[in-house]
């Protein structure tokens, strides 16, 4: 199939935006209500038989979930990534299970991780997180690091060398959890910060002691 005829098929969707990223990658953006039609079209008329993946992205600032359907054609050797956005507060979408069986897995995964409900999907039920009852954890407003800090203790170590250093007036100066903060760098090593920290806790003690 030529590129023109593929474009022609895609352009049957009125509101579509097509971006040719490179030879074998096409990005299309469609309104949520035309996504199923688009997939029907490209599966039925352009041999895009293989649903490679469905990805959900939480754009919390836009209050939207983005759903990305990656579909591959074994005949055209081309991948179309169909992007659409849905309302984050009313996180519902129609299933594409009737078109693509693998949607079962991806939709169930997204339901569990993001809380997007897929109407008509065969197994909208717990899957990986069978014993989790909190917020869908892949949502941006779930702070996994805070959860870990609340739930688990840091290992307490008190080896001899640390005891020795503490006796000399040294010891632990910057704990890893102080500086890491999900990779956000906060300088804790300057004298200014260390003096401040010294006031807050006694240097030379073990972890959560």
């Amino acid at each position: 199939m030529s590129l023109e005829s593929l474009n022609e098929i895609l352009n049957k969707i009125n509101t579509i935006k097509i971006t040719h990223k490179h030879k074998r990658r096409i990005r299309v953006d469609v309104k949520a209500d035309s996504l199923t039609t688009l997939l029907e079209l490209i599966k039925g008329q352009a041999s895009f038989l293989h649903l490679s993946a469905i990805t959900c992205v939480d754009w919390i600032e836009d209050n939207q979930f983005e759903l990305v359907y990656h579909v591959w054609s074994y005949e055209e050797n081309c991948l179309i990534s169909a992007h659409t956005r849905i309302d984050r507060d009313d996180a519902k979408f129609v299933t594409v299970y009737d078109l693509y069986k693998p949607a079962d897995f991806f939709e169930r995964d997204i339901y569990e991780m993001y809380g997007v409900f897929f109407i008509g999907s065969p197994r909208m039920e717990k899957f990986i997180l069978t014993e989790w009852f909190g917020m869908p954890p892949m949502r941006k407003d779930f702070d996994s690091e805070a959860y870990v800090q609340e739930t688990f203790n840091w290992t307490e170590y008190n080896p001899d060398w640390l005891q020795e250093l503490s006796d000399q007036g040294g010891g632990i100066a910057i704990k890893p959890e102080d500086i890491r903060l999900s990779g956000t760098l906060h300088n804790k090593a300057t004298h200014r910060e260390r003096e401040k920290a010294k006031k807050e806790h006694v240097v030379g003690k073990g972890w959560k002691s």
Partner: peptide, 8 residues
């Protein structure tokens, strides 16, 4: 996948 969102 979540961890990766929190790491450089």
């Amino acid at each position: 996948e979540k961890l990766m969102e929190g790491r450089l």
